[in-house]
Design a protein around this nucleic acid. Sequence first.
DNA 1: CAACTATCTGGACGATCGTCTCAGAATATC
DNA 2: GATATTCTGAGACGATCGTCCAGATAGTTG
Lengths: 206, 206
Amino acid sequence: MSGRRAGTREGTQKHVDGRKARGERRRNEIIDATLRVVERDGIAGVTHRTVAREAGVPTASTTYHFATLDDLLIATLISCAQAMATEVYWMIDRARSREGLRRAGEGGPSAADEVSRLLAEALGPRRGRTMAEYELYLLAARRPALRPAARRWLDVLTSMMRHDDDVAFRVFLAGIDGLLIQGLIDDEPPTAEELRPVVDYLLTPR
Amino acid sequence: MSGRRAGTREGTQKHVDGRKARGERRRNEIIDATLRVVERDGIAGVTHRTVAREAGVPTASTTYHFATLDDLLIATLISCAQAMATEVYWMIDRARSREGLRRAGEGGPSAADEVSRLLAEALGPRRGRTMAEYELYLLAARRPALRPAARRWLDVLTSMMRHDDDVAFRVFLAGIDGLLIQGLIDDEPPTAEELRPVVDYLLTPR
DNA sequence: CAACTATCTGGACGATCGTCTCAGAATATC
DNA sequence: GATATTCTGAGACGATCGTCCAGATAGTTG
């Protein structure tokens, strides 16, 4: 991506980035700001001005880097899907190594524990983010160009998780999505303990 | 447009409806028009003017019956949820009687057949409607006041379908939602035959 | 019939929207 | 240094938005 900078956030150095890098950084800042706006107010709250205010940049900066509001939303969905896929990637990686430890005889958390904890997190502290993801998901339903990006986290899961039974795995994926979207209209987010038996059932082969 | 058409479902008589009845009819026409707009252009496309144009009424008529745009969306979601719940009710009722026939020895379609056919329908011919429902679903995630209405079809299913195992049933509901929302970002809607094994797995106990 | 009132509507208001323009600041290349 | 390119940022434009309101219309009631 930016290639020049060390961290995602702005560093302390000045005048070291080239024009290209600065432009790309601002582009990313705008995308991040857009995602924050979607988390807070939904896609309906996304305007050039609200995004610019959130990012702390002038209005025209958003129109310079993203010719149209659609381009901005598209870039945000793609970035969001990318981040999600990366997260899922590392999450699975961690779970794998833990499972390795567990198999070595230690008895750590089971896969159902792991998944229900993640679901509870997505519906609790990360609720805004989860809502944003599903709003962008639904946006992809109306715009074919966005569908590959929207399918990305499903693809990552599919390619990374071992699954002997394709049908069972598809049911698992659908169940996760269903539990998440149904959890979003619960008055209070379900706890990992409440989700545990459902996830367990979902993971039990038949 | 014409002041007193024969309503969508009312009789053809003139001058028999009181003021109250006329007002209520127009209210429903506006709600129906709103749902059509949501199906076609999404919630983002809902404005007083587009709804009024779709319903064939003057702009101010939408603001007269629904003080604010939020009221209009809320009324639409509630109406939509009600219609959905009613549909599900009769759908299950029909399936029940068919099952009765099948048990009598005839060998009709199985529950998995029935469900996958309905899913394929929701993702094919009724795709717009399904998208609209999930958009309103997600709207409920942001507005607590809408959640009871959004949960309604889940409640109808839960109260009508026999389920010995609560956990299994919850997995079933989540799976349906997940299959639907994932089907919305498929480039081409899945056929009932493709869905069949997944639904079958979903319905298989344990 | 006239008075009343719920219902309906055309038009207007200010706010906000997406997008564009353009002068000049910042930076790379020479 | 000088110059070309990229980016910033203040502001303006017309369009559309949500909402409101005064007047017209038409059932209802006395």
